[in-house]
């Protein structure tokens, strides 16, 4: 429930920013969307178990689902790479306006 709410809020904010004018806002929207998707990936696992999956201390019966974590770890880094790429595009050549000034 809380996770779903967080996802909904982030998606709404991300989509709103995505539809604005200017690359920076698009990038910020993209960042929020990727947050939402990462949380969605987490919620696809078993979120009722929340012990860190460090097996020198954790019990396999209560440890959190490691698979979505591995996915999300990868996704965070890729989203970061794409973010800095998009930020580069925002300042390459001219300012970050994405529409004809009319």
């Amino acid at each position: 429930m809380t996770l779903a709410l967080s996802i909904g809020i982030l998606v709404a904010g991300g989509v709103f920013m995505l539809l604005q004018r200017g690359m920076i806002r698009i990038v910020l929207g993209f960042i929020m969307l990727s947050h939402a998707v990462n949380l969605l990936l987490m919620s696809a696992g078993v979120t009722s178990r929340r012990d860190a999956p460090l097996m020198d201390t954790a019990d396999p019966a209560t440890a959190a689902d490691p698979l979505p974590q591995a996915f999300v770890l990868t996704a965070i880094v890729i989203a970061f790479a794409i973010t800095i790429y998009m930020l580069t595009l925002a300042v390459a050549r001219s300012d970050d306006d994405t529409e004809d000034p009319s």
């Binding site: 909904g8 809020i9 998606v11 709404a12 989509v15 709103f16 969605l40």
Partner: peptide, 16 residues
């Protein structure tokens, strides 16, 4: 944009 955002947010939250 707000309308689209709310639709998407509600859809994503419901789906999640």
């Amino acid at each position: 944009a707000g309308v689209v955002a709310v639709i998407m947010g509600v859809a994503a939250g419901l789906a999640a």
